[in-house]
């Protein structure tokens, strides 16, 4: 098993009263697309900031390429490309200036690649960044993150509020990265459709804790959506032990559960209901189910 690109071990951090991260452990293998989902405030950005060495762990360890990003920022950051929602680019700089400025930090910067992307994205080299649209700024941020072909691309909700064409550019960059000699991507997103398309591995944070962390295929195989029909309308949600979420009204109730833990027919018999539907839960349903707990 190759050494993980990212190894987070029992990471915890609180800010005053708020427990932002609670005993989070995960490992990202080289060459994979690692998706990170969770509600706003679940801890995704906080986790990413720890990866970048911006926060020191209160408990636990964070290692990138086997190095501590807090102790060894230059060594780690030189091998990373980072893009966040609303990239913080100096408004007064022109596009070409920003690229030239960024290039200085990365010995592996590929000017031909950067130029090809700039042209493909239709960015006027002389335009001042403050005159660029949100989507154009995201594209520029993407070039800055990508042009040195980093071993690890870290994207923190890069697609938020962007039109489908820019989102497509970002997804393409993600795919290009992993097909390119097994470079690695970790990206956090609200857009489950995109996460589902490109992720190999998926982790969900909820209130600072890891709800699940597994290959995407396993997560989808594990979660089932079972619809129950009761003869008599139920006032309260039926008590299904081991269910992740039970929702509905009256006669029809939907159970999202771990496929290994619940036997639909037995459960239905026990409750005096009939199984009307038994399918794989969509990622959306899985997410909502875990987030509601």
């Amino acid at each position: 098993m190759p050494e993980p690109v990212i190894a987070v071990d029992h990471l915890s951090r609180s800010f005053g009263d708020k427990q932002a991260l609670s005993d989070v452990s995960l490992a990202v293998t080289p060459g994979c697309v690692f998706g990170l989902v969770g509600e706003n405030g679940a801890g995704k950005s906080t986790l990413i900031k720890h990866l970048l060495g911006l926060w020191r762990p209160q408990t636990g360890t964070v290692r990138l390429f086997g190095l501590d990003p807090v102790a060894d920022p230059v060594a780690v950051l030189g091998r990373i490309g980072y893009l966040s929602e609303e990239p913080d680019l100096p408004g007064w700089m022109q596009v070409w200036e920003l690229l030239r400025y960024t290039q200085a930090f990365y010995p592996k910067w590929d000017t031909t690649y950067a130029e090809r992307l700039r042209e493909q994205f239709g960015l006027d080299p002389n335009a001042r960044i403050k005159t660029l649209s949100k989507g154009q700024r995201a594209r520029l941020g993407l070039i800055a993150a990508e042009a040195h072909r980093p071993e690890l691309l870290i994207l923190d909700e890069p697609s938020s509020g962007l039109d489908p064409i820019v989102r497509r550019d970002i997804l393409e960059a993600i795919i290009r990265t992993v097909t390119d000699q097994g470079r690695t991507v970790i990206f956090s997103s609200h857009l489950l459709d995109e996460v589902e398309r490109v992720s190999d591995h998926l982790a969900m944070l909820h209130r600072g804790a890891l709800r699940f962390c597994a290959p995407l295929d396993d997560i989808k195989a594990r979660h089932r959506r079972i619809v129950l029909h009761f003869e008599r309308p139920q006032q309260d949600p039926p008590n299904v032990s081991g269910a992740i979420r039970v929702a509905g009204t009256g006669r029809e109730w939907t159970v999202i559960c771990d496929a290994g833990k619940i036997h639909p027919a037995a459960m239905a018999r026990h409750l005096g209901a009939a199984v009307v539907d038994d399918t794989t839960a969509s990622l959306d349903e899985i997410f909502v189910a875990h987030a509601s707990n």
Partner: peptide, 14 residues
Amino acid sequence: SVRKMAEDLLINPN
């Protein structure tokens, strides 16, 4: 190619 297909369809190459 795997790469082209993945990029065109915007899905994971695996």
